[in-house]
Amino acid sequence: MKKAITLYEQGSHRWFVIARDPDKPHCLIDTNEYVITHAGQALLTDPGGLEIFPAVFSAVSEVIDPAQVGQIFASHQDPDVISSLALWLEFNPDLRCHVSGLWKSFIPHFGGDEHTLLSIADDGADIDLHGHPLHAIPAHYLHSSGNFHLWDAKAQILFSGDIGAAMLPHDQQEIFVRDFAQHIRHAEGFHRRWMGSNSAKRDWCERAAKLPIDMLCPQHGAIYQGDDVMRFINWLDELKVGLF
């Protein structure tokens, strides 16, 4: 079963990562889900695919009552990101899902309707979590054409979707990056192929470098923290991706 691990806690403001499922079939890509709580309400980032819903739901219920999850943030439209939406809606029909306006009419193929899906405009938006602002930051073409990351200025944590993702071998399942040089080899192929635009990547690197990020939390692989965050941004800035 997936485990919920606390990343940040100050009063009621908390971040948990839901990660690593030893029982998951190898044919499914491993994903990290993040739960952000504030004053009794919670937001879930990229809740994952239909197949892993039981593991994610069980792990979430280890740390909070899942009824607190009133909002979902979908970085983009992929099935490993949001195809479990219909099941989350079965549990809480009032749930709202924030996603790029580009995908507003595509995602209802997974579940939900015009009331469920809240469009994020291209230049980003603030998402209110019971009085605490979270910032949806544009990351278009990295890799999806309508793509956002989520910045929490209080916790100094950036949920970075597919940016920072690494395809870790099954025997390397650490939650945090321990050896950057060793780790980044598992991220290189992924970024070269999936990130389509060098100019979008450069723009993202410039904006990310200005944020005081303590943890950079991708949807796949291990979390970068401390100096490894800037190491990663510099590495990505140098990397040639997509078509050029």
Binding site: F57, S61, A67, E90
Partner: peptide, 10 residues
Amino acid sequence: TPLRQVVNLR
């Protein structure tokens, strides 16, 4: 709902 029942149980 069945899932709510399981959550209460947990």
